[in-house]
Design a protein around this nucleic acid. Sequence first.
DNA 1: TCGCAGGGGGATG
DNA 2: CATCCCCCTGCG
Length: 289
Amino acid sequence: MNAEFHVHLSEAIDLDATLLSGQAFTWKRHNSSYEGLLAGIPATISPVPNNPGELLVKTVSHEGVSPQAVANYFDDGTNYSELRNELRSLDPFCDRAIEYSPGLRLLRQDPWETLVCFILSSCNNVPRITGIVHRLTQLSSRHFPSPEDIVRAGESKLRQAGAGFRAPYLIEAAKMVLDGTVDLAGLRSLPTDEAVKVLMTLPGVGRKVASCVALYGLHKCDAFPIDVWIKKVLQQAYFGGREVELPKLEQFARKHFGSKAGYAQNWLYNWARRSRLADISSATRSRME
DNA sequence: TCGCAGGGGGATG
DNA sequence: CATCCCCCTGCG
């Protein structure tokens, strides 16, 4: 019942940056391949040598996973060369960030999966979150746990999986999704701010997590999640290094980057994390010259 | 050993 | 409002 197929993307993709740098938490790299979940099902993605943009996908089942679905997961419907040009012209920091990882894609993930992963992300790091998610899948026959699975598992099992103090948040959020208090799919039709507001009614979901779910799970491209890293980048790049309140930073970013703010966020975040902010001072100098 | 971390929530003045 | 402290867990 195994499935194996090729996916042709419109251009080369940076799988490390795209799958491992903090927008998704199901992927682990093994040599040149990536093991994780597609449509909640275990899958392996490998680059095809000498064919940039071509991927080999292996899954345990055909269900819900097609070349089109994978291309969509990698946001292949977006014209990235046009997007890069547009954002790079905005300012030297955005320019540098995009130049740093031009093949970074904004993933289009499942809203529930995104919600769970980002509730788990609070006071946590990528490898640990990935580990927790992996153990959660083992509670529910290796696929990503549904809201029913989370409720059924119960707090102690979730804690055993490593969710810690976030365990009750997951259970309560699952209940709210199940009883229709929050209609995740329905949020797609709402403006970003409205969707964020609704998401924040879920336990363990503040503005940052809600914005992440909006961006990565609902593909609200103007959402702009601000964590400590993005905060540092914005302050250093656009505010002369001085302390600026979160709402002001978000207001600035969403105005400055406009409808593509989420893409800018993804690139700036990736740049800040992977270059450890080292490049920012040099970009600042180049702007002064 | 103990403080601390990519966040959120509740209590307090 | 601002500030403080706690919440699991693992790593330095």
